[in-house]
Design a protein around this nucleic acid. Structure first.
Lengths: 168, 168
DNA sequence: AGTGAAAGGATATAATATAACACTGCCGGG
DNA sequence: CCCGGCAGTGTTATATTATATCCTTTCACT
């Protein structure tokens, strides 16, 4: 991932390409802090920790994975509602996305700009790439609209093989 | 829904429009029987019953809803694996679809022709309409392909308001 | 009838998610 | 300063969705 500090990061960069992932994390945390401050929302230590754990990789993580990671670092184990509340907050703020086909969560590449992601999910390594909203989604909404349906949210998840896993 | 007996039913017909739903069910069961026979697969009474219950409406039903409906009609309650095995069979044969965003299942309008559905899900009444594969999905796959990703399956679920619920 | 494979029954448990209530600390109004 | 309310978190219990495992029954075929 590139290390641009622009407000609009280069979301065409690929999760599949080897990169210094600490930059992804730092970037995500920085943007999250900025966005929450603008909106008068509190990015508490707990929420920040959960966001960081979700950003731990470019693979979607389950709520109970987050839970396990948190419990590992503490004496007292964390309870599910703690994690789900933090995840719900991050979802509401658009800082993470939920991958419905995996019941898992992944950091958003482009928070602060309300959008619906298109996700490319590798079956094999689970690495997941978010694509920017495209004309295809606009077309889908139009097609739905032509039947009289009023679309509020579009969920698009493509499953297959990422470039690296195709070679094996 | 129309009552055509063609091999390619009119899948542009709308679940939202009032219709004689027994025809939908009959049509679905008829096609299912035919497809299974062609493939040397067994549409057992249990599987047929589950298919019928899934087709009970144009709303996705949960596995445990099916379970409850089955248990209601019998002395001995049905166990989850029984239902899930039947659902898995029906999914494999393309007779039903799974709606990931609802963890629920819905009858396929156009079984026998392998396809990925596009689903329009009403938030309010939950009625769900399947659209035929469209150029938008082709475009999506192309867009994914241009990043080197090889798409095996496309999941598209649009959530919003159906024509009837918009009026309220 | 005998046999192997597929289907289904039964029990237990895993994995994901929420309900409900209690505690704490902060912050603004008196 | 005190209090009252609220957001955030802790804690316990439970709901919901799905699978593992083992055993029995049924079926197609010989």
């Amino acid at each position: 991932m590139n290390q641009s500090t622009e407000t609009h990061p280069d979301i065409t960069s690929s999760a599949y390409i080897s990169h210094d992932h600490t930059c992804c994390i730092d970037n995500a945390l920085g943007q999250a802090a900025e966005i929450c401050q603008k909106r008068g929302q509190r990015l508490t230590p707990l929420r920040k920790q959960v966001l960081e754990l979700v950003w731990d990789s470019h693979k979607p993580v389950g709520a109970y994975d987050v839970l396990a990671m948190m419990s590992r670092d503490q004496e007292r184990p964390t309870a599910p509602p703690t994690v789900y509340r933090a995840l719900d907050f991050l979802l509401e703020q658009g800082l993470i996305h939920r991958i419905a086909s995996l019941n898992a969560y992944i950091g958003c590449h482009c928070p602060g700009h309300p959008h619906e992601g298109i996700f490319l999910i590798c079956k094999q390594c689970r690495t997941t790439q978010e694509l920017p909203d495209s004309s295809a989604v606009v077309h889908l909404r139009k097609q739905a609209g032509s039947t009289g349906f009023q679309t509020h949210h579009a969920l698009v998840e493509l499953t297959g093989l990422c470039p690296a896993c195709q070679e094996q």
